[in-house]
């Protein structure tokens, strides 16, 4: 079934929408949740939360790209769950390592910026990522959006894990420099 037909089911309040979403995009969203959370149980619960949120939001939204819409929803829900679990000292998936790497780009101080600054920061990061060569861009997005493991990215691209790690390290430095030059207080 094409994506517009699935969205139509949500709009028509037809419960088959969830079943079809699970079949078509369950593995995709499940992989994102699994990367961030680690455990299969948490992944399944996060997937269920995604479907509930999609069910509640779809009569208002008509996503232009359904997989990205669902994937983003899953990522946000998984990360919120990760933060709750971490507060209880329960381990996460790849998120611990991803956050450790990202800490090189920021000061760690609590932000006081408003919604406008955040919007500008999102746009600046978007411009930066879009300007990267295709190979670096894919590696960066897979690591910091999908939270994919370094060895998995390396395997898929036929590279050594060390090469991927080096590429990510250089890109993080570039990102920090790019944002600092533009006046963002990280």
């Amino acid at each position: 079934m094409d994506d517009d037909s699935i969205i139509r089911l949500y709009w028509d309040r037809d419960e088959r929408a969830i079943e079809i979403t699970d079949k078509k995009y369950g593995p995709y969203c499940g992989a994102i949740a699994g990367n961030i959370l680690g455990s299969r149980e948490d992944r399944e619960e996060c997937l269920n939360d995604t479907y509930i949120r999609a069910w509640n939001s779809m009569p208002k939204d008509w996503p232009g790209r359904l997989p990205a819409y669902l994937g983003r929803m899953t990522r946000n829900l998984a990360f919120n769950r990760y933060k709750r679990e971490r507060a209880k000292k329960r381990g996460g998936g790849e998120a611990d390592l991803v956050l450790e790497e990202l800490s090189e780009c920021v000061s760690g101080a609590e932000s006081v910026e408003g919604a406008m600054d955040r919007r500008e920061l999102i746009e600046a990061i978007g411009v930066f990522v879009r300007g990267l060569p295709e190979n670096k861009r894919s590696i960066f997005v897979r690591r910091y959006w999908y939270a994919d493991r370094v060895d998995k990215i390396a395997r898929d691209r036929g590279l050594a894990p060390g090469t991927v790690s080096k590429t990510l390290e250089r890109t993080r430095k570039q990102l920090r420099g790019y944002l600092t030059e533009r006046g963002f207080e990280l």
Binding site: N76, F79, L102, S103, V106, A109, I125, L186
Partner: peptide
């Protein structure tokens, strides 16, 4: 900015 903030911003 915390690393968690940056991870969330990258989600957009």
């Amino acid at each position: 900015m915390t690393r968690e903030d940056l991870f969330e911003v990258l989600g957009d």
